[in-house]
Amino acid sequence: MTDFVYQAELELIEQSSNRVELNLTIPENLYYFQGHFPEAPILPGVAQLDWVMNYLAQYFGLDITTLISVDALKFQHIVRPGYQVTLTLEQLKPKKYSFNYSSNHGQHASGKVVFA
Protein backbone atom coordinates (compact mmCIF):
# COMPACT_ATOMS: atom_id res chain seq x y z
CA MET A 1 0.00 0.00 0.00
CA THR A 2 1.27 3.46 -0.89
CA ASP A 3 1.68 6.07 1.81
CA PHE A 4 -0.09 9.19 0.64
CA VAL A 5 0.74 12.77 1.54
CA TYR A 6 -1.75 15.65 1.64
CA GLN A 7 0.50 18.63 1.03
CA ALA A 8 3.08 19.68 -1.51
CA GLU A 9 6.69 20.09 -0.46
CA LEU A 10 6.88 23.75 0.52
CA GLU A 11 9.66 26.32 0.22
CA LEU A 12 9.19 29.96 1.15
CA ILE A 13 10.72 32.09 -1.60
CA GLU A 14 9.75 35.59 -0.51
CA GLN A 15 7.58 37.19 2.17
CA SER A 16 6.59 40.78 2.88
CA SER A 17 3.68 42.35 4.75
CA ASN A 18 1.35 42.08 1.74
CA ARG A 19 2.88 39.35 -0.46
CA VAL A 20 4.06 35.75 -0.11
CA GLU A 21 5.69 33.65 -2.79
CA LEU A 22 5.94 29.89 -2.25
CA ASN A 23 7.55 27.11 -4.27
CA LEU A 24 5.46 23.93 -4.20
CA THR A 25 6.80 20.60 -5.42
CA ILE A 26 3.85 18.36 -6.19
CA PRO A 27 4.65 14.82 -4.96
CA GLU A 28 3.84 11.74 -7.02
CA ASN A 29 2.08 10.14 -4.03
CA LEU A 30 -0.22 13.09 -3.32
CA TYR A 31 -3.54 11.82 -1.96
CA TYR A 32 -5.56 14.08 -4.28
CA PHE A 33 -4.31 12.23 -7.38
CA GLN A 34 -6.21 9.11 -6.26
CA GLY A 35 -9.00 8.58 -8.78
CA HIS A 36 -8.41 11.98 -10.42
CA PHE A 37 -7.62 10.40 -12.93
CA PRO A 38 -5.85 6.99 -12.80
CA GLU A 39 -4.48 7.11 -16.38
CA ALA A 40 -3.47 10.79 -16.27
CA PRO A 41 -3.50 12.23 -12.72
CA ILE A 42 -4.16 15.95 -12.28
CA LEU A 43 -4.38 18.11 -9.17
CA PRO A 44 -8.04 18.96 -8.52
CA GLY A 45 -8.95 22.65 -8.39
CA VAL A 46 -10.58 22.17 -4.99
CA ALA A 47 -7.21 21.03 -3.57
CA GLN A 48 -5.51 24.09 -5.06
CA LEU A 49 -8.10 26.38 -3.48
CA ASP A 50 -7.77 24.55 -0.14
CA TRP A 51 -4.01 25.18 -0.18
CA VAL A 52 -4.62 28.87 -0.94
CA MET A 53 -6.89 29.15 2.08
CA ASN A 54 -4.49 27.30 4.39
CA TYR A 55 -1.49 29.39 3.31
CA LEU A 56 -3.48 32.62 3.69
CA ALA A 57 -4.25 31.57 7.27
CA GLN A 58 -0.64 30.58 7.89
CA TYR A 59 1.15 33.59 6.38
CA PHE A 60 -1.42 36.37 6.83
CA GLY A 61 -3.15 35.19 9.99
CA LEU A 62 -6.57 35.22 8.34
CA ASP A 63 -9.64 33.61 9.84
CA ILE A 64 -10.60 31.68 6.71
CA THR A 65 -14.01 30.81 8.16
CA THR A 66 -15.05 34.39 7.31
CA LEU A 67 -14.74 33.76 3.55
CA ILE A 68 -17.40 35.70 1.63
CA SER A 69 -16.53 34.91 -1.97
CA VAL A 70 -14.08 33.49 -4.47
CA ASP A 71 -13.97 35.77 -7.50
CA ALA A 72 -12.45 35.54 -10.99
CA LEU A 73 -11.49 31.90 -10.39
CA LYS A 74 -9.74 30.46 -13.45
CA PHE A 75 -8.00 27.16 -14.07
CA GLN A 76 -5.82 27.58 -17.15
CA HIS A 77 -3.45 24.57 -17.20
CA ILE A 78 -3.55 21.31 -15.28
CA VAL A 79 -1.03 20.47 -12.56
CA ARG A 80 0.52 17.01 -12.78
CA PRO A 81 2.59 14.93 -10.35
CA GLY A 82 6.18 16.11 -10.11
CA TYR A 83 5.49 19.68 -11.20
CA GLN A 84 7.15 22.54 -9.38
CA VAL A 85 4.75 25.47 -9.13
CA THR A 86 4.99 28.92 -7.64
CA LEU A 87 2.04 30.10 -5.58
CA THR A 88 1.87 33.87 -5.14
CA LEU A 89 -0.51 35.30 -2.55
CA GLU A 90 -1.02 39.05 -2.43
CA GLN A 91 -3.14 41.36 -0.31
CA LEU A 92 -5.05 43.74 -2.59
CA LYS A 93 -7.20 45.41 0.09
CA PRO A 94 -7.60 44.80 3.84
CA LYS A 95 -9.96 41.83 3.26
CA LYS A 96 -9.20 40.93 -0.38
CA TYR A 97 -6.36 38.70 -1.62
CA SER A 98 -5.27 37.39 -4.99
CA PHE A 99 -3.60 34.08 -5.76
CA ASN A 100 -1.74 32.74 -8.75
CA TYR A 101 -0.26 29.30 -9.44
CA SER A 102 2.38 29.29 -12.21
CA SER A 103 5.32 27.21 -13.43
CA ASN A 104 7.46 26.73 -16.50
CA HIS A 105 4.34 25.04 -17.96
CA GLY A 106 2.45 28.36 -17.79
CA GLN A 107 -0.19 29.82 -15.50
CA HIS A 108 -2.21 27.09 -13.82
CA ALA A 109 -4.82 28.90 -11.73
CA SER A 110 -5.70 32.33 -10.41
CA GLY A 111 -8.40 34.16 -8.55
CA LYS A 112 -9.33 36.43 -5.69
CA VAL A 113 -10.77 35.68 -2.26
CA VAL A 114 -12.75 38.10 -0.13
CA PHE A 115 -13.27 37.86 3.65
CA ALA A 116 -15.75 39.51 6.04
Rank of each mutant, 00 (worst) to 15 (best):
V113G: 08
V114W: 09
A109N: 05
I78Y: 06
K93F: 08
L62F: 13
Y32P: 03
Q107F: 03
Q91K: 09
K74P: 11
H108A: 02
A47Y: 01
G45Y: 03
P41N: 04
V70F: 08
L49V: 11
I13G: 05
D71A: 12
Y97A: 05
S17Q: 02
K93Q: 12
Q7V: 13
Y6H: 09
H108C: 03
N104H: 14
Y32E: 00
K93H: 09
V70L: 15
L92C: 11
I78T: 10
L92P: 05
A47G: 00
L22E: 05
R80A: 07
G35I: 03
W51K: 02
L10N: 00
W51V: 05
L56I: 02
L89C: 00
Q91V: 10
K74T: 02
E28R: 11
E39P: 01
G45Q: 03
N104E: 15
V114Y: 13
L67R: 15
Y59W: 10
D50N: 11
M53H: 00
S16P: 05
F4M: 13
F60W: 08
N29T: 10
S69W: 00
I26K: 00
Q58E: 08
P38V: 06
A109C: 02
P44V: 07
N104Q: 13
K95Q: 14
D50W: 07
K93E: 11
P94Y: 14
T25F: 01
G35C: 04
Q107H: 10
N23L: 10
R19P: 10
L12V: 12
D3W: 11
N18L: 07
F115A: 00
T66Q: 13
L56Q: 06
L10D: 15
M1F: 08
Q91R: 10
T66Y: 07
P41F: 02
G111W: 02
E90V: 02
G111Q: 12
Y101E: 04
N23M: 09
G61E: 07
T2E: 07
P27H: 04
S98V: 00
N18F: 08
T25P: 02
V5D: 14
N104P: 14
I13H: 08
Y83K: 15
Y83Q: 14
Y59C: 06
F4D: 05
Q107Y: 09
H105V: 13
S17T: 00
Y59F: 13
Q7Y: 15
A57P: 12
V85H: 01
V113P: 00
K96G: 01
P41T: 08
S16D: 05
S98N: 04
S16G: 11
T66K: 15
H108I: 04
E28S: 12
H105P: 05
V52I: 15
F4C: 08
F33P: 15
L24W: 08
L87A: 01
Q91N: 11
Q91P: 14
I78P: 03
T86K: 15
Q34L: 05
